[in-house]
Amino acid sequence: MLSIKDLTQRIIDFRDKREWKKYHTPKNLAISLVIEVGELLEHFQWKSDEEILKDTKVPEKREQLADELADVAIYTFLLANELDVDLEEAILRKLEKNERKYPVELVRGKYKKYTELVKDDGDSGGYFKTSSGRN
């Protein structure tokens, strides 16, 4: 399996062979990313979760979803490249932050945002809202 860096390089090679780099400014890539997310969302519009999961069993629909997800990933990798963000490092760092913000003992089975979490002892631990509502 290829790493994020290897995938990014393959995407850049594809782009550069077509001389598209001039169009790949951070602003244009961010806009393109949002457009691709919108195209992905079209596959979910007006459908229940059950209908969406059923679609994933139909090879043609599954491929369409996979293509849209790939487009989102490609623009994400290109944008990270243009902004000189090491995406592997950024993802790992963000996971570490989220582990601190969402400790398993406070969030297991819950969907609350970290600002709404309170430890039993009222300690906010730097991320959690105390029982008084202050951070």
Rank of each mutant, 00 (worst) to 15 (best):
I74R: 10
D121I: 04
F128P: 02
R108C: 07
K94Y: 05
D121N: 13
K94G: 05
E88H: 07
T25N: 14
Q9Y: 00
T115F: 00
E19N: 14
A73W: 03
Y127R: 08
L83Q: 09
T130G: 13
D86F: 06
L29N: 06
S48E: 09
K119I: 14
E82C: 01
K27A: 14
R18F: 04
F77S: 03
G122D: 12
E82F: 06
T130D: 13
D16Q: 13
V72T: 13
Y111F: 13
D67T: 15
S32P: 10
F128Y: 04
L40N: 06
E19I: 09
Y111E: 09
D71H: 04
L83C: 13
W20F: 15
Q9V: 01
D13N: 09
I31A: 03
T130E: 12
S3N: 12
F128R: 04
K94C: 10
R62A: 08
I74H: 01
P26L: 13
S124E: 00
Y111C: 10
K113W: 04
E68C: 09
A90T: 02
K54L: 08
E105D: 11
D71V: 02
P59T: 06
P103A: 00
L69P: 05
I11M: 07
D84Y: 10
L117I: 14
I91M: 14
L40F: 08
R10P: 01
E63C: 04
S131K: 12
E39T: 10
D13A: 06
E60S: 02
L7P: 00
K119Q: 08
L79P: 03
R93Y: 08
